[in-house]
């Protein structure tokens, strides 16, 4: 065996051991204590305008329709439960949806930013995914950037008269991929490579998480299409009630 073959074999053994010890691959939550303090604060501040906009939107919804309080709470709980259920996996490890694409399509990006931040806090406390100091960074990638892109793609596809299935699939899977890219960038900015700088690190982090994230994004896209189709055939009045137009 050459040196390179030896290295590849060893790395693969190590990786397989890691994944068999811990088969839960939650979508890219940055763990507690991982980021330096400056990064925690910066990402928190970046999130602020979106969160404030979301709060105002929700306030307006409540003023118009009081019934919305239980509905929004149920929607938040729905996103949490969907993101905690195991999804059918391709790679063998058990994986989970982010649910951000679905949330953005159903509730719109402003509402999702608030529901998303609550879901992230609960995921950190109840499921140990993500953390309190990394909440700002996670909120930006999962509750703001991902849903915004998903929603944008969904609207764009609608305007261009692309078939709805394709639109939903693209929205969900690209939103998921975008979340993963943002997280990689966040990690790279926090820990840039010594001689390659930030860009080299971005490529490194993208590469190491790609094997789990790429299949996951496709599965998430397929599942979101199936869920939206199921909803449109069974739940038209409910969908109208939350302001989603078919």
């Amino acid at each position: 065996m050459t040196k390179l073959q030896n290295f590849i074999l060893r790395t693969s053994v190590v990786l397989s051991i890691i994944f068999s010890v811990c088969p839960t691959a939650f979508a890219m939550h940055i763990m507690e204590g991982y980021l330096p303090p400056a990064m925690c604060i910066v990402w928190g501040v970046v999130c602020l305008p979106f969160v404030i906009k979301g709060l105002f939107t929700i306030k307006k919804i409540f003023a118009e329709n009081r019934r919305a309080i239980t509905m929004l709470a149920m929607s938040g709980a729905f996103i949490f439960v969907i993101s905690a259920l195991k999804i059918p996996s391709v790679t063998g490890s058990c994986s989970h949806m982010t649910g951000t694409g679905l949330g953005a399509i159903l509730f719109g990006p402003c509402t999702v930013s608030i529901l998303g931040i609550i879901v992230l806090i609960f995921q950190a406390i109840l499921l140990a995914h993500g953390g309190l100091t990394t909440l700002g960074a996670n909120t930006f990638s999962m509750a703001i950037a991902g849903p915004l892109l998903s929603y944008g793609i969904f609207r764009l596809c609608k305007k261009l008269n692309v078939s709805k299935k394709v639109g939903v699939f693209l929205a969900a899977s690209l939103g998921d991929l975008f979340t993963y890219c943002i997280t990689s960038i966040q990690l790279a900015i926090a820990y840039p490579s010594e001689n390659g700088g930030v860009m080299a690190s971005v490529v490194e982090f993208l590469g190491v998480f790609a094997p789990t994230q790429l299949p996951l994004a496709i599965v998430e896209g397929i599942l979101t299409v199936l869920i939206v189709m199921a909803l449109e055939s069974y739940a038209v009045p409910e969908l109208k009630a939350i302001g989603y137009e078919a």
């Binding site: 239980t70 509905m71 969907i82 259920l85 059918p88 199936l226 869920i227 199921a230 069974y234 409910e238």
Partner: peptide, 27 residues
């Protein structure tokens, strides 16, 4: 895999419907 995807989507869809129904009852 295929059936799992279908089952998951059906569970998620009916979960959403029952969630909204329940939210009306709770209101």
């Amino acid at each position: 895999f295929k059936t799992s995807c279908k089952s998951f989507a059906m569970v998620a869809g009916s979960l959403f419907i029952s969630a909204l129904k329940k939210s009306q009852a709770y209101y």
